[in-house]
């Protein structure tokens, strides 16, 4: 079984390596990823949001919606863990204890 999985994994890795062949070189400043959307963030963020840390500006403003989703993910995880590992609704009991 493990051999089968190993072969499968190697094949999948091969596929991914095949995919990397046509990628722009690592660190190429002229790759599409670095020239299409992101320059505008760098050039505009300071002016539009007065936030020098572009990552923060993009995170909380341009793509703020993603970040809201991210926070929700954390919240979901907290609720899921709580649902699984404790019987909630027993809030009163726990309050008594503390």
């Amino acid at each position: 079984m493990k051999t089968v999985i190993l072969i499968f994994v190697i094949l999948a890795g091969g596929l991914l390596l095949y995919g990397t062949m046509d990628m722009p070189a690592w660190g190429d400043p002229n790759s599409p990823a670095n020239t299409y959307v992101s320059p505008r963030y760098i050039e505009e963020a300071m002016e539009a949001t007065e936030t020098p840390n572009i990552v923060t500006a993009v995170l909380a403003d341009y793509r703020g919606y993603d970040t809201m989703g991210e926070t929700t993910v954390i919240f979901t995880a907290a609720i899921a863990c709580a649902l699984l590992l404790r019987g909630i609704g027993s809030a009163r009991k726990e309050e008594d204890e503390s």
């Binding site: 936030t51 923060t56 926070t71 954390i74 995880a77 907290a78 863990c81």
Partner: peptide
């Protein structure tokens, strides 16, 4: 916009702190 970012960061901070704390307590 800058203040808005600060506002949401505070929200995120609060949420992450408590959520992580809750997960740690549970696990």
């Amino acid at each position: 916009r800058s203040l808005g970012i600060l506002g949401v960061e505070i929200g995120v901070g609060l949420a992450v702190m408590t959520a992580m704390y809750s997960i740690i307590l549970d696990i």
